[in-house]
């Protein structure tokens, strides 16, 4: 049954040419060098400091660490972080896949 479900999902995304992470409601993180991080579909900001930004994703937290982090903009759809990015981590919720 699970295989059938997965196959249907694949058919749908492939047929409509929609990125699968959008249908799944997962965050999409695009990193340009170590200066810019573009995060789409995050569920909110958990912590925002000069050196770290913790965002809430569907299945866990996205932790962006660096120096002098500045949010270029923040909207319901996406946000852009600028600064010297050191690490981008995913902290999965227990039981998440």
């Amino acid at each position: 049954m699970a295989i059938r479900k997965a196959w249907d999902f694949f058919q749908l995304t492939d047929g409509l040419r929609i990125p699968p992470e959008i249908l799944r409601g997962e965050a999409r993180v695009t990193i340009s060098g170590n200066q810019r991080v573009w995060v789409e579909h995050c569920r909110g900001i958990l912590t925002f400091t000069e050196n770290a930004l913790i965002l809430q994703g569907k299945r866990g937290k996205i932790i962006i660490e660096g120096k002098r982090l500045v949010m270029e903009y923040y909207t319901r759809e996406d946000l852009v972080v600028r600064g010297t990015v050191r690490t981008v981590q995913y902290e999965m919720r227990e039981g998440g896949s």
Binding site: F48, T49, E50, L69, V70, M71, E72, Y73, Y74, T75, R76
Partner: peptide
């Protein structure tokens, strides 16, 4: 949908 930009902490 209140647009904020240049957020700095």
């Amino acid at each position: 949908r209140i647009h904020l930009w240049n957020l700095q902490r």
